[in-house]
Design a protein around this nucleic acid. Structure first.
Lengths: 142, 142
DNA sequence: ATAAAAACAGAGTATTTTGCTCGGAATTTA
DNA sequence: TAAATTCCGAGCAAAATACTCTGTTTTTAT
């Protein structure tokens, strides 16, 4: 892969929504200014997250976005996959390209292992965890 | 980061050189055809690897490239760094960009950990290891 | 000497990906 | 009915990636 701005921004927005979980929706304007994300870009990202089932939108005045799942049920892996597509650290791991060069190149097993580790770690972390962590940091830091 | 074709190709070429270690130099033509890498592109990559001290060139007829270090002394991390620059899985980890958006965003610690794991793993693997692995695979596969 | 086989060097280019923008329509609420 | 908001489709600019091109220099074989 490479985690692009899209995933980065998307995760930050979801983080904020997770902290507002069960409360009033948060508008794109609020999310964008909180994280300094270009508004029209974030709009697109939120629409994608909505299409993929992570959030739901409330139209009109006072509207915005709300999480549709519980923070503990959203893993970073899902979000990154939804926004940046399949995780492929190396081009040759990209499904659809599938290493057209050599049937089994000497380094492929290395990339496969690394990629699997990466996915595993991302899958092990939920939005809930991120919230926990950021609170710990705030509490612990001097 | 993202490991680009450049690192990918470079590593494959180094792998072949590692198997020829202490023998006659291998020409770009040979390396390129063995791994189906566009020749002029590989030429550039080899020049870079030479500048960075991984290989040395022999000019003229019968010439080519030879490893300058022992295979066990070349880690994947070094090679990737030499060809693709500093390893930064996420844009915000790129030194020089240094997350201009938020001083400490909620996800930064996650990326830092993942990136460190990645670097550590790449640093733990040498060309020697790759050769071992590929031989094991060949011997074991049926 | 000369020709062939290589690497060298610097510039340039095409394609893809990334990171956005724009304009107007539809929806909801005060 | 006006304001606040999302929706939608299209499009665009910059950067990164993946190369190419042209001509030069060095070395070796004949």
């Amino acid at each position: 892969m490479k985690v692009t701005r899209k995933s980065d921004y998307g995760l930050r927005a979801l983080y904020t929504l997770a902290r507002h979980y069960d409360n009033t929706p948060v508008s794109i304007g609020q999310l964008a200014s909180e994280h300094r994300i270009p508004e029209p870009f974030l709009e697109k990202i939120m629409q994608e997250l909505r299409d993929k089932g992570f959030v739901e939108a409330a139209h009109g005045r006072g509207g915005g976005y709300r999480l549709k799942k519980r923070p503990a049920q959203i893993t970073l892996r899902e979000v990154v996959r939804a926004l940046d597509g399949p995780i492929a650290l190396v081009t040759c791991l990209d499904p659809g390209l599938k290493c057209a060069i050599e049937l089994k190149c000497p380094t492929s097993s290395v990339w496969e292992i690394i990629n699997a580790q990466l996915e595993e770690y991302l899958a092990s972390l939920t939005l809930e965890d991120i919230i926990q962590k950021s609170q710990t940091v705030k509490a612990g830091a001097g």
